[in-house]
Design a binder for these strands. Structure first.
Length: 375
DNA sequence: GAAGCGTGGAC
DNA sequence: TGTCCAAGCTT
């Protein structure tokens, strides 16, 4: 059955912008609302599940324009007072800086990204600068952020931007989506935050806020659904500037207040409107399965990449399969990650799988009979 | 659609 | 200590 867009009822509503404090200058300047906002409120009239309240939810969720405006006012006001002064939110931050931040922030906490992001932008202030160096340098500079394939893809994205976009980060969703390592979330986030476009940004924070506030559930579904996208789109303010601010504000609310564990409902600007609270905070309907770590191939891969990051010359296979002490390595330099690798006591087959996988993924290559990061 | 992919802080 | 989880993407 062909998909078709839901019918939308729209009507303009004017709202006053929240008061602005001097301390929020950095944040509010990038996410500055217009003097008079005219929301064109979209209500999904065909897919009632998208915006319908939890049966026990408060009256606001009837989905009227006034209700939606209340949400916008409250959450935007909270954002003005509470938003963190992150460097990629500064008006002077380039689209490249924002793209780099979005890739680094995938599955990775802000506090760990900050120092690496600063070093990265200092060393490679433009996509062309990064594209001009070997991919292995990107993996090295990635440090211990995790998921080093992201570094590889960011390097590939820089090359694509340099070759196909004259060195300028593209400003439309489809062009961004075509870049390596850029999926639906990141494409929408860069188009919104770097270029001020009206895009429906949906990340894990926003999904969780919507799940609780609107749907009345403790957690969103295991995977992003079409209904969630429709809901997010229906909540998005109509004009570009307001939509950008709303995207950032809801994400920040999920990151700081509406957290996965122990949400700080007392500090929430919309706690009286929350369907999940009104329903008595029912527990999640499913238990998310945590990722195993100890003893896994992933753990071995990580330890091997740590060795390659430290190595200045190709690493012979023997060094992975034998005790570093037996090979005469002091517990310094490359001896440190080697010792860590051997403490894992992984089976030779597991080590073999890790090395083979790294070669297949382009995170390692053979040179002079040894393994090294891609040159 | 499910599985695979890193890392370290918080509780 | 072990478990959970963080601005996802790719195959």
């Amino acid at each position: 059955m062909p998909a078709h867009p839901p019918r939308l009822e729209t009507r303009p509503v004017s709202v006053h912008p929240p008061r602005r404090r001097a301390a929020d200058a950095l944040v509010t300047s990038r996410f500055s609302p217009p003097k008079h906002i005219h929301y064109s409120v979209g209500i999904d009239t065909e897919s009632s599940t998208a915006v319908s309240p939890h049966p026990a939810g408060p009256a606001w969720a009837a989905g009227t324009a006034a209700d939606l405006n209340r949400l916008h006012e409250r959450i935007n006001g909270w954002f003005s007072e509470t938003a963190r002064d992150l460097p990629w939110r500064e008006p002077a931050c380039s689209p490249w800086g924002i793209l780099v931040s979005e890739i680094m922030l995938q599955q990775t906490p802000v506090v760990r990204v900050l120092p690496v992001w600063h070093e990265w932008l200092k060393r490679w202030p433009t996509p062309a600068a990064l594209a001009g160096e070997p991919a292995g340098e990107a993996v090295r500079a990635w440090g211990r952020l995790g998921y080093p394939r992201r570094a590889l893809r960011l390097h590939a994205a820089a090359a694509a931007i340099t070759q196909d976009h004259s060195g300028k980060v593209p400003d439309t969703y489809p062009e961004l989506l075509a870049l390596p390592g850029v999926g639906g979330y990141t494409a929408a986030a860069v188009a919104s935050f770097a270029y001020g476009r009206r895009e429906t940004v949906v990340d894990t924070n926003i999904r969780r806020v919507h799940a609780r506030l609107i749907s009345g559930t403790a957690l969103p579904a295991p995977a992003l659904t079409a209904a969630e996208m429709r809901l997010a789109a229906s909540l998005l303010p109509a004009d570009d500037a307001s939509s950008v601010r709303w995207n950032a504000a809801v994400m920040e609310l999920g990151a700081l207040v509406c957290t996965a564990r122990a949400p700080k409902c007392a500090a929430c600007p919309v706690n009286d409107l929350c369907a999940w609270r009104a329903a008595g905070e029912p527990p999640p309907s499913y238990v998310p399965k945590g990722q195993a770590w100890h003893g896994t191939d992933r753990q071995v891969r990580g330890a091997v990449v740590a060795v390659l990051r430290q190595a200045e010359t190709p690493v012979p296979p023997d060094m992975f399969f034998h005790e570093p002490a037996d090979l005469g390595f002091a517990p310094t330099g490359i001896g440190v990650p080697l010792a860590a690798l051997h403490r894992l006591n992984s089976a030779p087959e597991q080590l073999e799988r890790a090395l083979t996988g790294l070669l297949a993924d382009g995170l390692a290559e053979m040179h002079d009979g040894g393994y090294r990061l891609p040159a």
